[in-house]
Amino acid sequence: MIQVFNLIKTYGGGAPALADISFSVKDGEFVFLTGPSGAGKTTLFKILFGGEKYDRGQVLVNGVNVGKLSEENLFFLRRDIGVVFQDYKLLPKKTVFENISFAQEVIGVPSKTIRTRTWEVLKSVGLTPKKDAYPLQLSGGEQQRVAIARALVNNPKIILADEPTGNLDPEISLKILNLFEKINQEGKTVIFATHSLEMLRAQNHRLLTLNRGKII
């Protein structure tokens, strides 16, 4: 469960990026986060996974007060959250299989489990034939599926998807959206940021709209 109370975030004394916003997302819910570029969607995601400090308010993720976590203890929070970015953030020198394994290696998952889990998630995103390919040999949609697999592999409770279809054509975008919905049906909470009206119209999920740092 995500609970945000009166959250304020300002960069360098300018207009607030997030201006006193409050909302909550229940466990297992799928929420669209929308709004124009610069509305504060990315800032909100960063705050949720502890990548950004905030000025005022309270943010609780799975009961953890994010603002109270020290830098050394942020990993507790981050192991419960899978993040997917618009630009995929894959490691170009690692293969698809290695990119997904890497996310498990760094948190100390035993190597036998790594192999099994990597195969499972590759299967679930339909990328087993591409396991030995390097990211730059893949299409945009495929790269995004690798990024989704990497976000899923450590079995987080929450998935934050920051404009995951921003670089993809509409047909592929819908397939990616369907993949996130499948993930949601497996019990994970998903916040899916997009400013594509087509995506928003395609499915009936709760909508959180941000504009100039405010929820409208």
């Binding site: 990548g51 990993f75 981050r78 192991r79 996310a103 760094v106 990497r150 450590n154």
Partner: peptide, 12 residues
């Protein structure tokens, strides 16, 4: 950056 994002400890 990715290591931090997926929950690697500072120690690792």
């Amino acid at each position: 950056e990715l290591m931090l994002l997926v929950g690697a400890t500072h120690r690792s």
